[in-house]
């Protein structure tokens, strides 16, 4: 039989279920699934979103060094849409700026990409620096330095659909087609 030991009070924090370090910083990541569920229930919406979950996870290994590979960038950011209102830094949530089809753009010429159409943290973040959510410049530097063999001539845009069926049936297939057309070896995906 196991006996419980008296608890060492020095290790107990006054924030239940929250791990904090010696500088009182919260070590746990934000429980987004729980937060969003509670949030939309509080707003009065039933039928909470069911997040995708799989027991099996596919895994492909690199077939050549990164320095010899062509890398592709997939983003959830959106190109500027004419007539869709404010889409820049600090813009309020903008559903009109959403897109529902996979798109691609030229990595040599990116005039604007925004994230006003997604629920990023608008209190602590402004989306003023595209490089904080779309690492094109860093990838170009990596290419110049030879860290990666080549950056694909196109980047690829993935819609943030609520429908997992559409994502799987349509968007995944469209993205794979584009990547194959461009002979991309390895992909970095940057959601927002």
């Amino acid at each position: 039989m196991r006996h419980s030991r008296p608890m060492d009070k020095s290790q107990v924090t006054n924030k239940p279920n929250t791990l904090i370090d010696s500088e009182d910083r919260i070590l746990e990541s934000v429980p987004y699934m729980q937060r969003l569920k509670d949030y939309y229930l509080a707003l009065g919406y039933g039928n909470p979103y069911q997040w995708a979950s799989y027991s099996e996870v596919p895994f492909a290994t690199l077939t050549k060094p990164l320095s010899e590979s062509k890398i592709g960038l997939i983003t959830t950011a959106a190109p500027y849409k004419e007539g869709a209102g404010d889409q820049g830094p600090r813009a309020p949530y903008n559903a009109a700026a959403k897109f529902y089809k996979v798109y691609s753009g030229n990595t040599d010429q990116v005039d604007f990409l925004g994230i006003s159409h997604v629920g990023y943290d608008r209190k602590y973040s402004t989306a003023e620096d595209i490089n904080s959510f779309f690492p094109l410049e860093a990838l170009k530097r990596a290419e110049r330095q030879g860290r990666v063999g080549q950056l694909s001539a196109r980047y690829y845009g993935a819609p943030t659909n609520r429908s997992q069926a559409t994502t799987i049936k349509q968007d995944c297939a469209d993205l794979l087609d584009l990547l194959r057309q461009d002979d991309v070896d390895v992909v970095i995906l940057v959601p927002n």
């Binding site: 990541s29 934000v30 987004y32 729980q34 799987i168 993205l175 794979l176 992909v187 959601p191």
Partner: peptide, 28 residues
């Protein structure tokens, strides 16, 4: 994006997701 990464890997393209919603990505 997690679903996209899974699809690409199943088709032999290695991927890495850079993100901040840890619970959602790992749940998938």
């Amino acid at each position: 994006m997690s679903l996209v990464a899974r699809h690409l890997e199943a088709n032999k393209i290695p991927t890495v997701i850079a993100g901040s919603a840890k619970d959602i990505v790992e749940h998938c």
